[in-house]
Design a protein around this nucleic acid. Structure first.
Lengths: 329, 329
DNA sequence: ATGAAAGCGCTAACAG
DNA sequence: CTGTTAGCGCTTTCAT
């Protein structure tokens, strides 16, 4: 920066100002400075700026997996909402593991982000403590925790699946199965399964048709295998709710391979409203949790908090919508 | 850090060392320091460390879209390969736009990453200059540029589609169409279309069956719509090659809706070997470009360069493999 | 609109 | 194995 200042015939301080949006520098001076910088191949050094100004313009985000279109949609909504203010996302993956989340959160907080967004409301005690003491806005998403750390933008996974069970029962479908993960690793998956069980019990129905499909995330293939086991062991099942559209699609293909008619012999429902659910044949009944909306609302919440417009903790409830399609009556 | 040092009864320098992996600090001292830090709620400040040590432990990565399983696989492979060395990925999305890539690359370089990985070998002149002058290892992926900026880990998109055309021609299928983007925005898509055209011409065949499916990225729905137009306008087409598995799957569903038999009436091929290609009915013939392998090889290349084990520019060619499945004879 | 002085919190370099 | 000194490249603060 000193070199640029020398070439442009100004002080380093003026060069610094020329690289900011709103700083008061005359147009002539600024263009001379930017020209000098370009000629010298100078690239602004954020690391020094970050230290001195105590601002990094990072927003830390943790998602379970990069390879999931739902979370990717949330990150995209978030990213776009934050970009206009010059905030950049610092992304990390927890691999559906709260221990990994703990390591990740600590690592991310060291980078001094302006805010942190985590997926889900289940954390290790230490993660919780780190978040609480971080001194920055914390947003939990994709869940509605009973005792949130800070702000919340999400929905109840259990309630959403509960609504799907209610829907089937209203159609006089009562022998309903659930395909999901076999571990408690994916806390959203566990919540969905819990919603299934509580809904079945609320209707006085058998909640025992649970098929474990593997460790999260459940792939299409695992969904197909689980459907095979369901058809083999409980052939009188009338409907199956899958933990995600991906496993539901896999289940659907298994029916196609076996010549089992959907929804004629068995109805299939998914979760997430992935693109595939709307286009596959038959199209999949599912629940839309509005992943992009979660991202957008989180972004504007963060901006409001950083601007001081939002004081106190916000709890923004997204209302998932059940989408009836061809895979169910 | 000074506070922690005081509580632990050591100098700040010793605290600094205690937070590093390999630094020489006695076990007793280190645990006392970490205990004091925990009691005080101290979180290490990377911003200061980054400035002083001139190391950020960031590797910058640009991908066209976060919402693409192929690129996500590459990022995952990369991320895992770099994690063990404490390198963290700083990710940005270009939205399939070289102008956006330019903005992004400049922004990322300001953060002083240890290396930068970009998707593709097509850039604006200024992006190229920024990369060349960055002074850090540059890796272009998912392409085999004629004049690389630095290192390369990728494959020829044109050659891969050329091989698919050759495959069909060897089966005496000659009336072949291509479904892809209508703009030159997605450079990989453009390269694939170019490979289709040159292959058809090399066989003396009509390369005019081109269906424009929309602006990249091409969705499943756009693939379905494009297939509809193909069936309406060129019903004697024997095979269609799609720019990606997602559009190919959409095309497949359109055939299902219309009662057009695949591969009986028309063969369908995709690109990318997405999970869906292996499980849908009929399963999709496609090309596997080994996205995770690209990520892993890129990670180990970067580590070698940073260690000084790799001098000069590496050009690592990944060999895509054609996978024959049920959607083609 | 521009400049001078001081310092952000850590660590390289050197010493012991 | 531990400590001392100086400074990374910006920007805050206060001037003018």
């Amino acid at each position: 920066m000193a070199d640029v200042a020398r070439v442009a015939g100004v002080s380093p301080m003026t060069v610094s100002r020329a690289f900011k949006r709103d700083a008061s520098v005359s147009d002539a001076t600024r263009s001379a400075i930017l020209e000098a910088a370009d000629a010298l191949g100078y690239v602004f050094d954020s690391t020094a700026s970050n230290l001195r100004s105590q601002r990094t313009d990072f927003v830390a985000v943790t998602i379970p997996s990069i390879n999931n279109a739902n979370f990717a949609d949330t990150v995209r909504g978030l990213s776009e909402g934050l970009k206009e203010r010059g905030l950049q996302i610092l992304l990390g993956y927890t691999d559906y593991d709260v221990r990994e989340e703990e390591r990740l959160v600590e690592q991310l907080l060291r980078r001094r982000p302006e805010a942190i967004v985590v997926t889900g409301g289940h954390h290790t005690p230490r993660t919780r403590r780190l978040l609480e003491n971080s001194g920055i806005p914390v947003v939990e998403t994709w869940d509605l925790p009973v005792a949130p750390v800070g702000h919340v933008v999400g929905f109840s996974n259990a309630a959403a699946v509960h609504a799907m069970v209610d829907h089937f029962v209203s159609l006089a479908i009562t022998r309903i199965a659930f395909i999901g993960g076999d571990a408690d690793r994916d806390t959203r998956g566990t919540d969905r399964r819990a919603g299934f069980i509580s809904a079945m019990r609320a209707h006085g129905l058998d909640a025992g048709r649970l098929i474990a499909a593997g460790t999260p995330p459940i792939s299409m293939k695992e969904g197909a295998d689980a459907m095979g086991r369901l058809l083999d062991t409980m052939p009188d099942t009338q409907a199956v709710i899958c933990v995600s559209d991906l496993s539901a699609f896999g289940a659907l293909t298994e029916c196609q391979r076996r010549g089992v008619s959907v929804p004629g012999q068995i109805a299939v429902a998914g979760f997430g409203n992935y693109e595939i659910a709307g286009i596959c044949v038959p199209s999949l009944t599912t629940i839309n949790p509005f992943p992009d909306e979660i991202g957008k609302r989180t972004a504007s919440l963060i901006l409001d908090v950083l601007d001081g417009k939002q004081t106190g903790s916000a709890a923004i409830a997204i209302k998932p919508v059940l989408i009836r399609r061809q895979s169910s009556p």
